[in-house]
């Protein structure tokens, strides 16, 4: 069952614009049912950490005729929606990050949409739609080669 509005209000209790963050979260998890809100410690570059909410899970990305469930994590700062979310692709142990224009080696996602973020024109639904398009052209993760592919069977 989905997280309720009152649960989200509690989770986001320390957020400066709690109700805006709650409403957006509700519309995201209604539309992308494989994303869920999770509270966790986010560690900033300067080593400080803060308890923040992320939307963690997968988004459906269509690539070359197949749909893949690409694992992502969108961190909402406590100033959301007046600052963009911090976004990562989260490869599983069987995946490897494909670095490129939009993803670095840590999985951090870079997009003009994030760079030019401005509330209320920008929102999470719009961001996820952009990700689905961009990742459909250039996936941020690929499956790791299997052992058998890396080491072909020995030919007697």
């Amino acid at each position: 069952m989905a997280v309720s509005e009152s649960q989200l209000k509690k989770m986001l209790g320390k957020y400066k614009y709690r109700d805006l963050s709650v409403q957006e979260t509700i519309s995201v998890i209604a539309q992308y049912k494989d994303l869920k809100p999770v509270m966790d410690g986010y560690v900033f570059n300067d080593g400080s950490s803060r308890e923040l909410m992320s939307l963690t899970g997968t988004i459906p990305v269509s690539y070359r005729g197949n749909t893949y469930n690409i694992p992502i994590c969108l961190w909402l700062l406590d100033t959301y929606p007046f600052n963009p979310p911090i976004c990562f692709v989260k490869p599983t142990s069987t995946m490897t990050i494909k670095t490129g224009k939009h993803v670095d080696a840590n999985g951090k996602i870079y997009l003009p949409y994030l760079h030019e973020w401005k509330h209320p024109q920008s929102d999470l639904i719009g961001l996820i739609q952009v990700m689905i398009v961009v990742f459909g052209e250039e996936p941020p993760v690929f499956s790791r080669p299997t052992i058998s592919a890396a080491y072909p069977p020995y030919q007697a």
């Binding site: 070359r64 893949y68 690409i70 490869p91 599983t92 995946m95 499956s143």
Partner: peptide
């Protein structure tokens, strides 16, 4: 709780 879709990725490319 969400069923939790298994993450998938395109096959490795060469």
């Amino acid at each position: 709780l969400n069923g939790g879709t298994i993450p998938t990725a395109p096959p490795s490319y060469t």
